[in-house]
Amino acid sequence: MILLTGGAGYIGSHIAVVLLDAGLDVVAVDNLSNSNSASLERIRAICGRSVIFRHADIRNEEAIYQILRAHDVTAVIHLAGLKAVGESTAQPITYYDNNVVGTMRLVSAMTRASVKTLVFSSSATVYGTPAYLPLDEKHPVAPINPYGRTKYFIEEILKDLHESDKDWRIAILRYFNPVGAHESGLIGEDPLDVPNNLLPIVAQVAIGRRPKVHVWGNDYDTPDGTGIRDFIHVVDLASGHLSALSQLRQPGLLTVNLGTGSGSSVMDVIQTFKEVSGRPVPYVIDQRRVGDVATCYADPTLAKNLLGWTSTRSLTQMCADHWHFQMKNPNGYRGA
Rank of each mutant, 00 (worst) to 15 (best):
A294R: 08
Q287W: 11
S277V: 05
A142Q: 11
L192C: 04
C296E: 10
N197Y: 12
A131L: 15
I172T: 08
A70G: 07
E62C: 05
H139E: 11
P146I: 12
M104A: 15
F120I: 08
T301P: 02
S265H: 00
P211K: 07
L302T: 08
H78C: 07
V27E: 05
R174T: 05
F120C: 03
A63T: 07
L161D: 12
W216M: 15
R44C: 10
H214S: 13
D224V: 07
G128A: 02
G185L: 05
I64C: 01
S114N: 12
P146N: 07
Q91R: 15
R54F: 09
D221S: 14
H324K: 12
R174M: 09
V284L: 12
F176K: 02
R49L: 02
N145A: 08
H71V: 03
E41K: 12
I172P: 02
Y152L: 14
M327I: 13
V293A: 04
N60S: 15
N34M: 05
V234K: 01
V194K: 11
H139I: 03
L173G: 05
L161C: 11
L307D: 08
H71N: 15
E189W: 01
Y220A: 14
S123P: 03
V179T: 07
V27K: 03
G23S: 01
P130S: 04
Y96K: 03
C47R: 03
R288G: 06
P130W: 01
D221V: 09
